[in-house]
């Protein structure tokens, strides 16, 4: 294998900056998308555990739609198709009016996609709590909002910390799909450096190391948090 190693190239003028901003965009997309995913996912997950048939139905339809279309196709739907289906002025606004349309499209796409996964975790977390707790909460006179707020959700969320962690890491990794619509995140930048300098080994290695580093940090942190918040005697669902 003939290959000219040149790690120094990554420290050269635009390339170091490219890597740096790429990593920044990756983190930003992931965090913004996670905010959407967590909020929306919790709501839909709770809807799927309600007695109301309509709420359950909406939740199920949402989860099936977003789980059964490949993420990349969803990305294209949001970016190319969604603005065309809106009334003309709105479509124009989505395409050109908002600053950084690629960024927001990627955030919304990843957020709504991951929300379906979070919803499934929330549902299984609540499902793992024995029915006695719900009944006991109703028996002492809590309203159904209070049952969720004070009994089911605090316990349910603790149980699903490990799978939620892997969903968060999923968003983090999936943010690389933003490159297909022009978000210059970490993977996009390392590919761009490869095309400019032909030093693919170095660029991809740095990207790989950064991804691994974040995964490792988040995993360690969440294990700590899980240990801190564990309720004695309750089991936890292992990460899938």
């Amino acid at each position: 294998m003939n290959y000219n190693w040149n790690w120094g190239v990554l420290l050269d003028d635009p390339y170091l900056m490219w890597m740096y901003t790429g990593f920044g965009w990756t983190c930003l997309v992931a965090i913004c998308a996670w905010v959407i995913a967590f909020t929306l996912g919790s709501i839909i997950g709770v809807m799927r555990t309600l007695d109301n048939g309509i709420a359950r139905g909406i939740g199920t339809v949402y989860v099936e739609i977003f789980r059964n279309i490949p993420l990349l196709v969803q990305m294209f739907l949001w970016y190319f198709v969604f603005p065309e289906l809106l009334p003309k002025d709105w479509g124009h606004f989505v395409k050109r009016g908002i600053p950084l349309p690629e960024f927001w499209t990627a955030v919304v796409c990843l957020g709504t996609y991951t929300a379906a996964r979070v919803a499934e975790q929330v549902r299984s977390g609540i499902g793992a709590i024995r029915n006695d707790q719900r009944n006991a909460a109703i028996a002492i006179g809590l309203t159904s909002v209070q049952v969720y707020r004070y009994v089911l959700l605090p316990v349910g969320f603790r149980i699903i910390i490990p799978p939620l962690t892997s969903d968060f890491l999923g968003v983090f990794k999936n943010s690389s799909l933003g490159l297909t619509i022009g978000v210059l995140e970490l993977t996009a930048q390392s590919r761009q450096i490869t095309e400019y300098t032909f030093q693919g080994f170095e660029a991809f290695t740095v990207a790989t190391v950064l991804y691994c580093l974040v995964t490792f940090t988040v995993m360690t942190l969440m294990q700590k948090i899980e240990g801190r918040t564990r309720i004695p005697g309750m089991l936890s669902l292992g990460a899938k």
Partner: peptide, 22 residues
């Protein structure tokens, strides 16, 4: 492998395999 995005893995092999085989 579980901590890498699939796209990056695809790029890695797309770039790496020809380098190794020559």
């Amino acid at each position: 492998f579980r901590s890498m995005p699939l796209i990056l893995v695809i790029f890695w092999f797309y770039f790496l395999v020809p380098q190794i085989i020559g």
